[in-house]
Design a protein around this nucleic acid. Structure first.
Lengths: 225, 225
DNA sequence: TATACCATACTTCCATACCAGTGAAGAGAA
DNA sequence: TTCTCTTCACTGGTATGGAAGTATGGTATA
């Protein structure tokens, strides 16, 4: 038996937290919605305490807001936070692209090509969820190719609000543009052209600058400045 | 009376969390130390529940690790996390420097000059705390000058482990080198030379690449890979 | 001496009860 | 009708007791 596989059952509180977090990320629990310790506890069939602790964790994630004696609400999406995360992504992924272009890790680049193929298929099928997941994997592979896997973990946390926006808009931004940029990035990486890889990456991420305000304007109830 | 100043007393749990967080950041509670719900509650004179919730928040910050039925421990500093945050800082602050060099916001640049003066003084006086605080303000001003204040808030959260390392090492890295780079950065910003500003910033942050492993090696008990 | 077992004193986790603050509905007066 | 006040259901916050799991040191056994 593989001793690394020995795990303990996660606490009730942690399970509730995971469940809520996924539902918020997927837009199942919409921004501004009120949630109640009592209701959730009764629905699951447990006491209030673990639910309460899950709410605290959710608030630490920036996904909920606990207002004492008033109620707990799913956080609205802060446009400023999304744009801040976008700025950070552009800077970081530009550097990552340069590093990968210089290192040219063939195995990683091949996997990136496969993801682009999956994105074509998801686009044809109109499967937004698959597209988003493959998109994320593409960018994660970039970090991996630069030997900076931990960097992606940090970016992923920053991306939390951005992910909610993507799911809510159900548009995943301009998909054909995204795929085209991914291809350009990959071509540049294969050719070892750091400058081209960087500029293609920056162009990809700057596209959000025009799309985010449009999405926010279309569903103003879900957003704050 | 300024109605904006009306605030409600923070919950006990939140106060305990703030208190613990500061003590961990300042190295008062060293990495690896065991803390107990019962002990902290008894020391403060409250029940265990708020303390428990403070521990949960602390764990969300990455500053503590709760091991069920075993105990709660102050997190050791992950060298990988520090280096990941450093990589992100370099990429982001390089872009910020370029933006500021192009915008040349005079008022901000003057404030940055004052911070450099404070750093000279703190260095002469051997006041490490003052030096660290001024150092942070210098970099925050950079984000401000680029119109990206929210970016600094995100970076600040990523810097959590880095800050602990700084306080623990009580060295604040190479102070004279830091001040010199700050001056070079400021000169480049004043001259509108984006390339020079970027390279000076990158050189400053790359200095950590050599210092972090040294500090970690000097106090191995406080660090993990 | 070395090993297996077990009592015990911890730990965090969960359930329950009660508290204080909030806000909206409803009664009553102008 | 409109306004004010009271009431009350409901919210999150805290205290406490006990359940389940873990580590440790002593003890019996080989």
């Amino acid at each position: 038996m593989d001793i690394a596989r020995i795990t303990i059952a996660p606490s009730t509180s942690a399970q509730v937290h995971d469940w809520l977090r996924k539902r918020v990320q997927q837009g199942d629990l919409p921004p501004g919605m009120r949630i109640s310790e009592t209701e959730v506890a009764a629905a699951i069939g447990i006491s209030r305490q673990p639910v309460r602790e899950a709410f605290i964790r959710l608030a630490s994630d920036g996904l909920a807001e606990v207002r004492p004696q008033r109620g707990t609400y799913i956080s609205k999406i802060s446009v400023a936070a999304v744009l801040s995360a976008r700025f950070i992504r552009e800077a970081v992924e530009a550097d990552l692209a340069r590093a990968v272009a210089n290192a040219r890790p063939v195995a990683i680049l091949d996997r990136m090509a496969k993801e682009i193929a999956k994105q074509h298929k998801a686009d044809r099928d109109g499967n937004v969820e698959d597209f988003i997941e493959s998109d994320d994997r593409f960018h994660k592979l970039l970090a991996l190719g630069a030997g900076q896997e931990a960097v992606w973990a940090d970016l992923d946390r920053l991306k939390a609000q951005m992910n909610r926006l993507r799911h809510l808009s159900m548009r995943a931004f301009d998909r054909s543009f995204t795929i085209g940029q991914h291809q350009q990035i990959l071509d540049a990486l294969r050719g070892g052209d750091a400058d081209a890889a960087e500029s293609a990456m920056r162009a990809l991420l700057r596209q959000m600058l025009t799309e985010v305000p449009q999405i926010a304007a279309a569903q103003p109830d879900y957003f704050t400045a």
